[in-house]
Design a protein around this nucleic acid. Structure first.
Lengths: 187, 187
DNA sequence: GGAGAACCTGAGTCAACGCTCATTTTACCG
DNA sequence: CGGTAAAATGAGCGTTGACTCAGGTTCTCC
């Protein structure tokens, strides 16, 4: 990893940031099919500027998702530090679903294969983090020992997907998660 | 419901059927973004013919989904008749997920809101059918009494979504469903 | 078998979108 | 300041995909 090759000019850095946040908004609302021009408009720059920073629409999406991923991973760290031992996994799960219900981009991240992009090792990094949450929960006796990482990741992705596409209201989110959590808890 | 207004000419009926099955294939493989022209090619007709039968791409998608829905509902009837009492819900659940993993269209049906179409009362009809499965399962003591229809529908949609987007292999499907079923079963 | 309506065909229209590039503007350094 | 390279601009290109329509083909019914 070459530490960010060249320092950007002041205006360039500002515009890059604007494009990134505008893109996060637009793609969250309209899905990944939203046009690059709309991102440019919302960012208050010309289309050419967007393409100068991200030569391809896919590059733009990748960059946005990488930001999102970094934020999620630091959430996991915070949760491991702050939650009651064993509850961190459930807290992360709940938080991610609530977040996804408003930020479609989360779903695209989890569905990487579907979206055709590939954020460098996104699933790998997320998997490792969720893995540590799972392990901690199992050691604390909050989660059954015979469930493994793949199905936890699968459920995470599935429930986020569902929450987004179906526009679940908060109470449906909690009721659905209750079933899943019951399924994960030892009897 | 005006009983199919006018009888189609022989060739028209044949082409309509061809377009419908070709469309089901194409949209299953490539997703709803696949081009209408590809459907026409696979059906062996000209584009104009597709648009004569379905004035809009959305109309075509709706028609395909209605077909699919009808088949699913008759599956439910069969299951209610043939399965061990109380197991029909689980059987339908498992079958639908396996089906979805190969037929993306199932997902679009469940995600109706997301796809922007609306098959006439699709969710309503499916909900009523799954509702009877649920009620039967609860009466048989196979499913907890404090879970309600909305979260069951939500889980159904979510797991199907996940299975499609993530391309879950069969064993991951069963392991994931195991967690969900445990969550639904009384302790 | 023949008239006429229903149907099929496929080149073509139009709009949307990803992306380019010649020109102009702006930040930075001495 | 003035010079220069980095950055921004936005009209425009090429492509793709939904949809149309004038003209040819096929079914149907007497």
């Amino acid at each position: 990893m070459p530490a960010d090759a060249k320092p950007l000019r002041a205006d360039a850095a500002r515009n890059r940031a604007r494009i990134l946040t505008a893109g996060a908004q637009v793609f969250s609302e309209r899905g990944p099919a939203a046009s690059t021009e709309e991102v440019a408009n919302r960012a208050g720059v010309a289309i050419g500027t967007v393409f100068r920073h991200f030569p391809t629409k896919a590059d733009l999406l990748r960059a946005i998702m990488k930001d999102l991923l970094d934020r999620l991973l630091s959430d996991v760290d915070g949760l491991l530090r702050d939650s009651a031992p064993g509850d961190a996994l459930f807290a992360f799960f709940t938080g991610l679903v609530a977040h996804a219900a408003r930020q479609k981009t989360v779903v695209d991240l989890l569905a990487e294969a579907g979206s055709g992009l590939n954020v460098p090792d996104a699933v790998g990094r997320l998997e490792r983090s969720v893995g540590s949450l799972l392990e901690e929960a199992q050691q604390a006796g909050t989660v059954r020992r015979d469930v493994a990482l793949p199905e936890v990741m699968a459920l995470l992705a599935a429930v986020c997907q569902g929450a987004v596409q179906g526009g679940w209201p908060p109470d449906l989110q909690t009721r659905t998660l209750a079933v899943v959590f019951t399924g994960l808890t030892p009897r």
